[in-house]
Design a protein around this nucleic acid. Structure first.
Lengths: 226, 226
DNA sequence: ACCTGAACACCGTTCAAGT
DNA sequence: ACCTGAACACCGTTCAAGT
């Protein structure tokens, strides 16, 4: 087999650099090999240039990762139409968490470098709308959105580096073996501390957060006119 | 000035490697220069050996960071004696968060590689005891401890990389400038979304979590015999 | 103006070879 | 058994010099 020669016009060997092109290439590397490989050098190699060239379009590695996350947020989809506001809220949050769980290390960097792109704004708008639909006062709803998103993001981030579960096993063993003499509550409740599927815990956590948000007023300085 | 010669016996030039010595040196580097400098190579240099030697005592960099965190947890101190269980609970959590806020990047790695040392166990015992004192059922209290610690850790972790606040400013601007036509809730509540001191938000979050934990039963599979 | 080669200053981890 | 020199395979970021 011989490859047909291509005209220079039809397929330039090296497309011009753009921010979108860089982010798209980063997403491709993320999907294929994980965030650890989404480095400036690797990306430059993929785009057939030197790493220095990327700094014209991206401030640094953190900003690159935030742009990648906003891109993936676009795959979460709109709010469900059926069910009570509580059910819909929990479903949106669960879908967001599930997406992040596919790339836990991205969740980890999202905790530090929050995305601020259009997909992230849309998610905040949706969550805020559902809490207001539930009759939750503005100020509580606003702070509540932050709390809900932080829990989802942190839960996904905890799974980063899960390929070496040595740390988690160490905690479990320490809890099971804690002596009742010095740690009576742990000894009595070790089972409960370690129980529950990740799904059950996530669902309980969202219900817990929503119940708390409904009932806890923000301090006066934090309130807005209604 | 001439340095007095030291006897070889009095001050050996190179102390023997031990796990404790390695962790202590790591804590010293953390205090002086931050977690970014707590690397295997830097640590080896400080201990006058090659990086390969450290792998006899520490599995990898993550495990080293977890050991450092448990060490710092020892500086948090015991539960306060005065006040209602709610007040004492909030005070313990605030002190834990304040300690982590001195080393946000350590909080970030704690989210992934949980510590399992004696100081961490003590903290869990304290929190569990306070929730039980408040009459919260065992299973809820156990899952609640996790939720409270996760919030504290994640909140501190968010401040990692704060020296370059570009990302946070970008979110704030995006929220303030969101058009009412497409994002009515954000436009109406931008003030509330961005309001509140970090202290006020942290305190509200703990109260919210506690209120939720009090009222939300865990699913039956997660429950233990009382 | 835009782009980049080359350099600076580092990383984690492994392993063959030494004592 | 314990320890380590040297190597392997990478990093982020800057900047002088090119087009």
């Amino acid at each position: 087999m011989t490859a047909a020669p291509r005209s220079r016009r039809e397929r330039p060997a090296k497309p011009a650099l753009t921010r979108e092109g860089i982010v798209a290439a980063a997403v491709a590397i993320l999907r294929a090999e994980g965030l650890r490989k989404v480095t400036m050098r690797r990306l430059a190699q993929e785009l057939d240039t030197g790493p220095a060239s990327l700094y014209v379009y991206v401030r640094n590695t953190d900003e690159l990762h935030a742009a990648v996350l906003d891109e993936l947020l676009g795959t979460v989809g709109p709010a469900p139409a059926e069910g009570s506001w509580r059910e819909r809220l929990e479903r949106v949050l669960t879908r967001y968490t599930a997406m992040l769980l596919e790339h836990p290390s991205l969740a980890r960097s999202a905790l530090t470098a929050r995305p601020s792109g259009p997909h992230y704004l849309r998610l905040i708008e949706t969550l805020l709308g559902l809490l207001r639909e539930g009759g939750i006062p503005r100020a509580q709803a606003a702070w509540g959105v932050d709390l809900l998103l932080q829990h989802a993001t942190a839960t996904a981030a905890e799974h980063a580096g899960e390929e070496s579960p040595a740390a988690w096993e160490a905690v479990a063993r320490a809890l099971r073996e804690a002596p009742a003499a010095t740690h009576p509550h742990i000894a009595a409740d070790a089972g409960a501390l370690l129980s529950g599927t990740p799904e059950a815990r996530l669902s309980w956590a969202f219900q817990t957060l929503i119940a708390g948000i409904e009932r806890t007023a923000v301090p006066t300085e934090g309130q807005e006119a209604p």
